[in-house]
Design a protein around this nucleic acid. Sequence first.
DNA 1: ATGAATTAGTTTCATATGTAACTATTATGC
DNA 2: GCATAATAGTTACATATGAAACTAATTCAT
Lengths: 152, 152
Amino acid sequence: MPAPTQALELENFLPYRLSILAQIVSEALHDRYVEPFGLSVTQWRVMAALGRFAPLTASDIGQRIVMDKVAVSRAVAGLMKRRLIERATDQADRRRAELRLSARGRAMHARIVPIALAYEKRLYEALRPEERRSFDEQTERLFAHARSLRGD
Amino acid sequence: MPAPTQALELENFLPYRLSILAQIVSEALHDRYVEPFGLSVTQWRVMAALGRFAPLTASDIGQRIVMDKVAVSRAVAGLMKRRLIERATDQADRRRAELRLSARGRAMHARIVPIALAYEKRLYEALRPEERRSFDEQTERLFAHARSLRGD
DNA sequence: ATGAATTAGTTTCATATGTAACTATTATGC
DNA sequence: GCATAATAGTTACATATGAAACTAATTCAT
C-alpha cells in the first residue's frame, strides 16, 4: 500500500515560521523608525551601510547588504532626492559613483541608530543571555546552508 | 562629553538577519514548489491550511495563518479561478462561505507536501538534532515577544 | 586600435501588497 | 420593529518589488 501522505503543519513548518517572525519584526521597525522618518526599510539599510562604511558605490552596498542593484538604485534615488546622501562620480571610472551620507543624513542616522539598537535589545529579552549567541550562530548556519541549497 | 554613538552593524543586527534568512528560504520555496505549480506563496499557504483543516471560512484562514483578510480574499479568488478550491455559501449566515480543496486541489496538495517537507528536512540539516528543538522554541519565544512589543 | 563582451547603474513593465473605502448581510440598542 | 453598529468579504488606489531590457562607460581579445 502507498505511504500515507505526511501532514504539513504550517504553524510548525520552519520556512513559514521564519517568514512570519521576520515579518512581525519588520513591521515593528517600520513603526518605530522607518515610518516616523519617512524611510523605506531598504532606504534605511542603505543609510546604515553608508553610516559604517562610506564611501561605497551602489554595487558595494549590494554586496555588503543582501540587496540587488535595482533595489539599491531605487533607494539611492529616494535618498538623493531628500539630500540624505551625496553622490560623487568616480573620475577614473565614470560608471561608478561614490556615495556617502550628507550632514543631514548623518544627523538622521545618529537619531535612528539608538532607536534600532534599543528595539533589538528589547527583542533579545525573549532569549536568555547564553541563548543569544547560540541563536545567532544557528541563524548564521541556516542562512549559509539555505544559500548552498539554492538551485539544487 | 556626549556618549559616543553606538555602532549599528547591520550584518549582526537581529531584525536584519531574520529578514534575509526568511527571504532566502522563501526564494528557495518559490523555486521548488510555488513557481512550478503556478502558485503564489500566499495561495500555497491557503491550500496548506485547507488541506489540514477544511472546511474553513476566509476569516478562519486568516486566523489560522498570519494573513490579513485582503490577502486571503485575493488568494482565494486565484485558487477559485483555477478550480483548486470550492466555495459554499453558509445558508445560516450568507456573509460567510466555507472553503475546501477540490479534487484537483487535493491532488496538487498531495504532490506539493512531500516537496515542502523534503526541503524543510534539508534545511534542518544545518542544525544538530538537539539544536532543532531549542531553535524552534526560541523562534516561538521571539515571535510571541515581538508581538507583545507592538505599539510600545 | 577596434569590435565584442563586461560592468555600473537606470528605466520599464508586470505583479504583489497594504490601506482604506465599499457592498452585503447579520446583530444590537432602544 | 427600526435605525445603528458590527462583521464577512471585495474592490480600488497607491506604493513596492522582481525580472528583463536598456544606456553609458570600460575592458578584453585579437
